[in-house]
């Protein structure tokens, strides 16, 4: 059981990184950014390109590339449709997602590629009878630091406070003189940084890359946000950990024949939770209902 909790904590941290990147944009501008998965893909392939450099340099470059991609995304694709309806922005993000995926496919080809990053962190250490991967520890630790950093940024810096104000009421915040362009661009930048870190851990964990590698994480991220409660950042993180725990426990305890239906059962569980808490586990009543 304890072993499974450790596994759930590690997987939940990875999910939380992805979910927060998406939740940040949703809470500020109501954008459901499907192209977030492609930021992870771009990060993965950037890591493949830089993996022979010292790890710290490679990781820094990956963050720089993905943040730049996220800022470009904002400037070129989302700023022109900022005032538009949610559906228009959703369609824009779909189109962008396909466009980037097509670009990666053209440049890198369809074949899966493999890379060994953070191989040294792969080994496990024994903690009181539990086998804990050093990579798991790194994921949990870095996620905790990033979550704390984001909380500090949102509470203690002027830009962070402006972002929170924009998240509460975007129109009112603008009326009060908050510069929307700067706030939104910052949100995209932070979202990109989270995607970059998620990409590094994802590739370190699986060692493999495909042009569609971002799809599955982004879906998991959305589910985590809905499960946690739309519109609240920390609710997205809670959703991510609950989703990971459900997934790990079912994988661990489902009998052989049923294990293939793990994901179906996970989603069934989520539907049940949402029936009882339509605003998500930690969402506020009066917020967005699912």
């Amino acid at each position: 059981m304890a072993q499974n909790l450790v596994n759930a904590l590690s997987l939940g941290s990875l999910y939380a990184l992805i979910a927060l990147g998406i939740a940040l944009l949703f809470s500020i501008m109501g954008l459901i950014n499907f192209a977030h998965g492609e930021l992870i893909t771009v990060g993965g392939y950037a890591l493949l390109a830089f993996h022979r450099l010292p790890f710290a340099v490679a990781a820094g470059l990956v963050v720089a590339v993905v943040v730049a991609a996220a800022l470009l995304m904002e400037r070129l694709a989302f700023r022109p449709v900022r005032g538009a309806s949610g559906e228009t922005m959703l369609m824009t993000s779909f189109a962008l997602s396909l466009l980037i995926q097509g670009g990666v496919l053209l440049k890198e080809g369809a074949d899966p590629q493999s890379v060994d990053v953070l191989g040294g962190l792969g080994a496990s250490i024994d903690v009181g009878g539990l086998s804990v991967g050093r990579l798991d520890l790194a994921i949990v630790g870095v996620t905790a630091v990033l979550l704390a950093g984001l909380a500090w940024f949102l509470r203690a810096t002027p830009l962070g406070v402006q972002m929170r104000a924009a998240a509460e009421d975007f129109t009112m915040a603008r009326a009060l003189g908050i510069r929307a362009d700067r706030v939104v661009a910052t949100a995209f930048g932070v979202s990109g940084a989270f995607a970059a870190v998620a990409a590094v851990f994802l590739v370190a964990r699986t060692g493999t890359l495909t042009p569609s590698m971002g799809l599955s994480p982004v879906l998991v991220g959305f589910v985590a946000i809905v499960l946690g409660g739309l519109g609240r950042l920390w609710a997205a993180a809670i959703g991510a950990y609950v989703l990971a725990a459900l997934s790990v426990m079912l994988q661990a305890y489902l009998p052989g024949g049923l294990a293939a239906y793990r994901d179906a059962l996970v989603y069934l569980g989520i539907i049940v939770i949402l029936l009882f808490r339509p605003h998500g586990i930690a969402g506020r009543p009066g917020g967005v209902r699912v």
Partner: peptide, 15 residues
Amino acid sequence: DTIQQQDTSFSVQVA
């Protein structure tokens, strides 16, 4: 045990 293409973690299966 079951392993799936989209899994990002196989730690339960390994355990």
